[in-house]
Amino acid sequence: MSIGVASDARGRRERRPLKQLFLIAFAVLLSGCAGVQSALDPAGTEAEAVATLFWVMVAGGTLIWIAVMGGFYYATRIKREPHSERAAGRLILWGGAVFPVVVLTLLLAYGLSLMPKLRPWTAVAEEPALRIEVTGEQFWWRVTYHRAGEDPVVAANEIRLPVGERVVFTLKSADVVHSFWIPSLGGKMDMIPGRDNTLTLEATRTGIYRSPCAEFCGSSHALMVFSTVVMEPDAFDDWLAREARPSPGAKADGLDAFLRNGCQACHAITGTEANGVIGPDLSHVGSRDTLGAGILQNEIDSYVALIRRPDVIKPGIRMPGFHGLPDEEIETIARYLKGLE
C-alpha cells in the first residue's frame, strides 16, 4: 500500500491522510502571511515596498507560467506537427530575446526606483534625531539609543521605536556575522565585524514585532531573537526618559545577592555599582517583553532557570551556570531582576 492511501473494510480506497497532509502544509504556509514576523503583513514603509515588489513578482511569475503552460499545451495537443523554420526563428527572437530583455529592463527599473525608499541615504547624511546602535553578539543584541545632545541609553534584546518617525540604525557585530531583520518593518542587513552598516526604517503601525537573527552565527543562532515595540511618539519619549533613569527597584533587596555572586562582572544595572559590559544591560530587564534574547517568557521561573543552567537553555551561551548556589539565593536574585521595571 502506498503512503497516503487508506482503504476501508470493503477495500474502497480513500486518500484522506494525504489530503490532510496537504491541508496542514497549506495552513503552515498561510500562517506565514500574517503575524508578528511576516514580511507579507507590513507595518513599515520599507516593508510595504518589499511586499508590493513580492506581489508584483508573484503575479508576473504566474502570468509567465500560464503562458509557458499554454504554449506547451498548444504544441502538444493542438498543433501536433512540426512548425516552419521561420515560425521557430520568430519565436526564438521574440520569446527568447526581445521579451526577456524588455521584462528584465522593466524589473530593473522598478527595483532601482524603489531604492530611494528602501535605502534613503540622504536621510542619513545629517545626524538624525534618533539613532539606534545595535550590536550582534553570540547570542544576543546590545542596543544603544543615541539622541542629539543627550547621553546614550543602553539596553538589550528589545528595540523600541516611535511610530511614523524615520529612525537610523547603526549595525555592528562583536564576533561573527549576524543579520538584523525586522520582517514587519523592512528588509534585512548583515552585521559584519569591523564594519558599521547603516539602515533606516520607518514604522507605520504600533505593535510588537519579532526578529530572529537572519545569519547563522553558531550553536544558538536559532535562539537569538529580539522584539521590536513600536509606540506612539509621546509614549516612546516617556519610555526612553524612564529607561535613562535607574529603575525604582534598583536598590531593592536582592541587589546584595546579585553583587555577592559576581553578576556585576558582566552585567550593568544603572543606579548601582554593577557596571559590567560583557553581557546584556539589566537596568530595566523586568519590563521587557521577553527574556534571554526572545526565547523565554519574562517571569520569575525563567530567571531561575536561566541563572541556574544557562547552557541548557542556550547551548554555547557566554554566561556561566550558577546551579551551585542555594535555591533561595537564586530566587532572591530572580525576584530582584524581575522587579527592575
Binding site: 529592463t105 532601482l112 526606483s113 531604492m115 530611494p116 541615504w121 540622504t122 547603516t198
Partner: peptide
C-alpha cells in the same frame, strides 16, 4: 552595458 549604467540614473549620493 545599459543595465550596468542604470543605477547611476537613480543613485544621487555615496552611501554613508
Amino acid at each position: 552595458v545599459i543595465f550596468t549604467a542604470m543605477p547611476a540614473a537613480i543613485i544621487t549620493e555615496c552611501n554613508p
